[in-house]
Nucleic acid binder design. Structure first.
Lengths: 230, 230
DNA sequence: CTGCTTTCGCTACGACTCGTAGCGTAACTG
DNA sequence: CAGTTACGCTACGAGTCGTAGCGAAAGCAG
């Protein structure tokens, strides 16, 4: 790989933000493009092809040429939208994490177990397995990529922890926050623990997440609150 | 990358085990080689060059050609010893984890905090950062590589958890094991939690491991044993 | 010392990927 | 209609990969 070029885009100022802005909302505030609009169908085809190729070939086998061929798109079209494989995969994988939701099942334990199960199911998918750790690895070298990963993938999950906490506080299971920053740090620590542990179990140890394991792990998480451990 | 070739080695039956067997124990059970012995100095030079290049260029920038040049060794010599970049990096990085030790400071809390600090320091090093997640990522696709990673890197750390548990049981802080398999599963879950959480904090969230964070995290781990939380 | 065996460094090779440039054409706007 | 932009296609130089072939060097048995 050559040096990480500054995000120069020959055709357009590049999307630079989250998902590529598909020109489908004509009355949006975005300046109406003048020439031929970018094909939204091509965007979808590219992202789908990326996910499929990721599941089949893995991160190392994924090639911009492959994606272009599979999406029935010229390689140059690919590079007009995404400057590198990393950014492409972030966008292709980010949407997979949208399926994670906080259920509010009536107890903190049940909520945690449900989220862990959802996350485990997501990590069991081949596309996710092939992409997630490789993206994280690239992120350790490229701060800008890490920022994109945080915004597109990590932070949306942190929201789940906050929702679960809030629900538990509304139920009276948890004491309401006294210090704002302390609450923030607690959210961070809980999040890193859940995400890191499940990822390590599935992707590194390579062992499945069973209901029994989820029960034990949740018990560990609830340790500081013995009243919630039946 | 082409298909993951079976480990064919043209010159010798390949090392196939842990570290390359340096021919330094003449009365070992290994059949005494007849021809010119492999240079042990070359092995050390290659592994050192790999760690240096890893710290400078990262995983993606690491090239077999670079390593060979930096180690003042022909590229063919590299391929005679390690069939691919993955295996090379496993051996180059594995020794870094030897510095992790279980201190036995007199209390379970102190022991845990010490190990977490050591692990955090290890993860702060550029070689480790560049290699660990990338290796894990490749391991999700190549079961054989995953086995090598487990044997060379992951399992030695699991030993720390067992030692810490044993010490705490000897001190009377923890109840002795009743069920063998349950104890094993508990070791697994503790290990995945510590390793996964610290890795996620450092490598994904990209935030440092402070003494305060370590204290909070240890408190979370000790949650099920409130008597140990001062 | 002389053969035998194995590794060494070196060069070269075909296959592949990368990211870019140039071109003519297609699509949409005013 | 003209103007603007995206599109598909082809081609390119640079770089990496893993292997093959060669002569030379290093160790060991006789």
């Amino acid at each position: 790989m050559p040096a990480p070029q500054p995000p120069v885009t020959p055709d357009r100022p590049a999307h630079q933000d989250g998902l590529p802005a598909a020109p489908e909302s004509p009355d949006s505030t975005t300046a109406r493009a003048k020439g031929r609009p970018r094909s939204a169908a091509a965007d979808r085809a590219i992202l789908d092809a990326t996910r499929e190729a990721l599941a089949e070939l893995g991160w190392g086998g994924l090639t911009m040429g492959h994606v272009a061929t599979r999406a029935k798109v010229a390689k140059t079209t690919l590079y007009r939208r995404w400057p590198s494989k990393n950014e492409l995969v972030v966008d292709a994988v980010a949407s997979l994490f949208d399926e994670l939701v906080m259920p509010d099942l009536g107890s903190l334990r049940a909520d945690i177990e449900a989220v862990v199960s959802q996350f485990a199911a997501l990590l069991a998918r081949p596309e996710t397995q092939a992409a997630l750790l490789a993206l994280f690895a690239e992120g350790t070298r490229d701060p800008q990529l890490r920022r994109r990963i945080r915004e597109a993938i990590v932070d949306p999950q942190k929201r789940l922890v906050r929702q679960g906490r809030a629900a538990a506080q509304a139920r009276g299971e948890l004491a309401p926050d006294c210090d704002e920053t302390a609450a923030c740090e607690e959210v961070d620590i809980i999040f890193d623990t859940i995400a890191g542990t499940v990822e390590h179990r599935v992707l590194v140890s390579g062992e499945p997440i069973t209901a029994e394991w989820t029960r034990r792990f949740t018990t560990l998480l609830l340790g500081p609150f013995p009243s919630l451990v039946p």
